[in-house]
Structure formats: C-alpha cells, structure tokens
Design a protein around this nucleic acid. Sequence first.
DNA 1: TTGATATATTGATGTTTGTCAATATATCAA
DNA 2: TTGATATATTGACAAACATCAATATATCAA
Lengths: 105, 105
Amino acid sequence: MAIAACCSPESTTPFTHDDATRLAKVFAALGDPIRLKLFTLIARDPSQEVCACSFVDELQRSQPTISHHLKILREAELIAGTKRGTWIWYSVNTQALSEVREFLS
Amino acid sequence: MAIAACCSPESTTPFTHDDATRLAKVFAALGDPIRLKLFTLIARDPSQEVCACSFVDELQRSQPTISHHLKILREAELIAGTKRGTWIWYSVNTQALSEVREFLS
DNA sequence: TTGATATATTGATGTTTGTCAATATATCAA
DNA sequence: TTGATATATTGACAAACATCAATATATCAA
C-alpha cells in the first residue's frame, strides 16, 4: 500500500482558468512600478480626476511609454478615461477595485 | 503667456521608486493565473496550511514550474513555507496581505 | 488653413518571464 | 546503505514586456 497522501484530495481550485487569467491581468497591471505610480496619481488626486498630460514629466518616461501603460491599466479596467477636448481625464474604476479587494479579503 | 497647465503642479508621486518597485513585485506575484491559483489554494484551505505536493496534479504544470512559482510568491512574502520532513507546508503571510489591502483602500 | 499641443500607434530592441527536461539535494523507510 | 519521494536548481527557449524614436491622429487657437 502506498504512503498516505499528504493533501486532501477534494481540494479544488476555487475558480476557472479563465477567471484566474482575468483577475491575474488586473494584478499584473499593478505589477509594474510605473503603472503603480500612475494608478496612485490617478486614485489619490483630490479632484478625483487627473489629466494624462503631466505624467511624462512626473514619471520620467517617454510619452509613448506612458500611453502604453495607461492602456494596460484601462484594459484591466482599473481606470477609465474621458476625453474633453485635447486632454483625457482619468479616474479610478471603483467597481474593479472592489472586486480586487474582495478577492484579497 | 503659455496656456495654463491642465494639472496642478504640486501633485507628486506618493512613494519612492523603490517603494513602488517593492509593492509592484507583490502585485506582479499575483499577476499570473497559475500563481493566483496557487495562492488561493494556500489561502483558502480550511486547515490554513497546505503542502506543495498536490499542486503539480491540480495545476497541470511540471514540478519545476510549480517550484518556481512558489518561490516568486515566497519572495514577494505573500506566503511562507515550513519544512516538515520531506514536505513543505505553506501558509499565507497575513501581514503582507494587509499591506496590499491597505494600499487598495 | 496653419501651427501647436495631447494622445495613440508602429516598429525596433534589449530584457524579463513561463515553461520544461535534466539533474541535484534532502528526507524518510526498509 | 539503498531506494523512493518531495523539492530546488540549472540551462535552454519561445513568448511577452518595457522602452523609445518616429510617425499618425485629433483638437484647439489664431
């Protein structure tokens, strides 16, 4: 007879691979220092809405790089942007954030 | 005179690049579907401690791959492992988790 | 329309990542 | 000691990623 298994056989992954992939995408979006700073700049602005135009100076990355990171945060639905004239104003998607918080609690 | 800037000049990044890098590492650790499943398997086990030996079967990845992912979760201090004989029992580092939760709140 | 500014896209490049096979190390049982 | 099992490390490789220069698109002002 084999040695008893160390783990209960009935333990299962609590979500599907697709669900895990979707949620992992949200965490991965925050998994880069520049994006984490972008996110906090957007989240913690007193006015709750920030335009993208200052990020290049503040984060010392080229404009295409900032644009690329904002896209990743948008695609993870952590932020949303509204175009007003030439500028885009960003704000945090509080619902997506709640889902992440719920996962961690 | 130039057009008024769209953003308040006094807005600053709320943490240093090193801090952002460290926290980003934690998010990045959760930013992969396999690691997210590993983490939930460890976090949600009723006994609060899980041995690594079943992960290969459950997650359908090779043993070196699972070992690699567990190392990344360990280095992000999201989990901790205790060796008991041949097996390693994993549990969640609740303090690291609190810090992440605090950031998101 | 023309010039200036904000943002997006494309293409290129070096780096990092996820994965596995092969191998190594550690522990236990016989 | 020998064999079996759990985990770690190494080396290799393809895919994904972060970055920038160049260019494109969109909007506003003159």
